[in-house]
């Protein structure tokens, strides 16, 4: 093995060591973050069931609002960040942006799924039907379809650079669609309750309910952050593995060619 090969090996050993060191100290911090989030969510669950007052007309089923609205906000925030990840990748060609885009898209998709499940559970007793095609419901449904398509597209393109670019373009096209969808269906029909928070005069909720909601929102936001971070890290590790594998292959090939020449 020539000096160039040794240099390469040292460099790789260095990267591996560096990774191990940073993971150890960082993992402790993120482990604590996980525990804190779990406690926060458990407390929020307690508050939702035992602290928040019973809603007058809807009864206990209204308690689903705390989860439904909080996850909807988290999902939307995640998709919004994903949109910026896509723009960031196209502007800079740094893989980190692509990792951010995919991490937030996946987490956002999970939250949207929660929204799409909790919504009908609430709607059946209150509206009398599981589902209606109104503006918010349809937009949420199409949002779910768009990001499933985004993840499918990523699965079907293997080369990382190309995948990052194609999916960034798709991510931008998909996100531009969301307001169009929303307005097209709003003009079509709307049944979903008007926003109770910041929805203009006459809207607003009981202060205890508001605090419980904020508490739940904080829990879900914390969950969003750590899930995105874990997913991002997974993507980074995947990249390192494929780099190492490519390097290994290269070395094996050079060894083989040496044996042939000998």
């Amino acid at each position: 093995m020539g000096p160039a090969g040794d240099g390469q090996r040292q460099q790789i050993d260095g990267t591996v060591q560096e990774m191990e060191m940073t993971t150890k100290s960082k993992q402790r911090v993120w482990g604590l973050a996980w525990v804190a989030t779990a406690i926060l969510l458990a407390l929020a669950g307690y508050a939702i069931f035992f602290v928040a007052p019973r809603e007058l007309t809807m009864g206990n089923i209204q308690r689903i609002f705390y989860v439904h609205v909080a996850t909807a906000w988290c999902g939307f925030i995640a998709f919004f960040i994903s949109f910026f990840g896509c723009i960031g990748y196209l502007a800079s060609r740094q893989m980190e942006w692509d990792w951010l885009a995919v991490a937030t898209a996946e987490v956002g998709l999970m939250f949207t799924t929660v929204v799409l499940i909790t919504g009908p559970v609430w709607a059946k007793p209150v509206w009398g039907v599981w589902w209606v095609w109104d503006a918010r419901l349809t937009t949420a449904f199409i949002l779910e379809m768009l990001y499933i398509a985004y993840l499918l597209l990523r699965k079907m393109v293997t080369e990382p650079g190309r995948r990052a670019m194609i999916s960034a373009v798709f991510g931008i096209f998909a996100f531009l669609d969301v307001p169009l969808c929303y307005f097209s269906i709003r003009w079509w029909r709307t049944l979903h309750p008007a926003p109770v928070i910041g929805g203009g005069p006459g809207s607003g909720i009981n202060p205890v309910m508001w605090h419980v909601f904020l508490f739940g929102l904080a829990g879900f936001l914390a969950l969003t952050v750590i899930l995105v971070r874990d997913r991002y890290r997974m993507e980074a590790l995947r990249q390192k593995i494929s780099e190492l594998a490519a390097d290994l292959e290269e070395r094996e090939e050079s060894l083989e060619s040496k044996e042939v020449t000998r």
Binding site: F173, D177, L180
Partner: peptide, 17 residues
């Protein structure tokens, strides 16, 4: 990969409006 299947899946949700 699977581009024949993929295109409608990408296209139809975006065309909803």
């Amino acid at each position: 990969r699977m581009r024949e299947l993929l295109l409608p899946l990408l296209l139809l949700p975006v065309l909803a409006p």
